[in-house]
């Protein structure tokens, strides 16, 4: 009797699934890829953010040097535009994923979870779009007193 039940169950299972895939994935591998992304983006961000902090806060005048001319000097170079864009995208997506995990951990009601995640998605998309537009539509020569070589030609 038991043997028959087991056989039926096994047959029913093997018809659809291999022994190593014990459940039918309904959400794809999203959580696996988000786990991989956190580690990969984390390592890239370590380099990008430490470089950003070192150049902006340790070199030269440090925090006192930061003004429009400082930003213009950096963003007149494609190198820093791409650096900052990568930092923005990876940082926002890494943070998005982290906060998503926190929301999943602490919210108890489906409604609260939905509201918080909607806010999170809206804020993330807004910040990525705004930041990207700012980096690439920026005009370093808008300041008439600029002494940058790209502006004095």
């Amino acid at each position: 009797m038991t043997a028959t039940t087991d056989q039926t169950a096994t047959a029913a299972t093997s018809a659809k699934l291999s022994p190593y895939k014990r459940f039918t994935p309904t959400r794809g591998n999203f959580e696996l890829w988000s786990w991989v992304f956190m580690r990969a983006s984390g390592i890239l961000l370590l380099v990008l953010v430490f470089g950003h902090l070192f150049v902006n806060l340790m070199l030269g005048e440090g925090i006192h040097a930061i003004d429009f001319a400082f930003v213009a000097g950096k963003w007149s170079s494609p190198f820093w535009q791409v650096w900052d864009m990568l930092m923005l995208w990876l940082g926002m997506l890494h943070g998005f994923n982290g906060v998503r995990t926190i929301i999943n951990d602490y919210t108890e009601r489906e409604g609260t979870r939905w509201v918080l995640k909607t806010l999170l998605v809206v804020a993330t998309v807004f910040t990525i779009v705004l930041g990207t537009l700012v980096i690439f539509t920026f005009d370093p020569c808008i300041d008439p007193n600029s002494t940058l070589s790209v502006c004095t030609k």
Binding site: G95, V99, L130
Partner: peptide, 18 residues
């Protein structure tokens, strides 16, 4: 969480260059 919240503020204040 702190860094993520700061990042919003940091992108917004930097957007003032525009």
């Amino acid at each position: 969480l702190l860094l993520f919240l700061f990042l919003f503020a940091h992108v917004l204040d930097t957007a003032l260059v525009r």
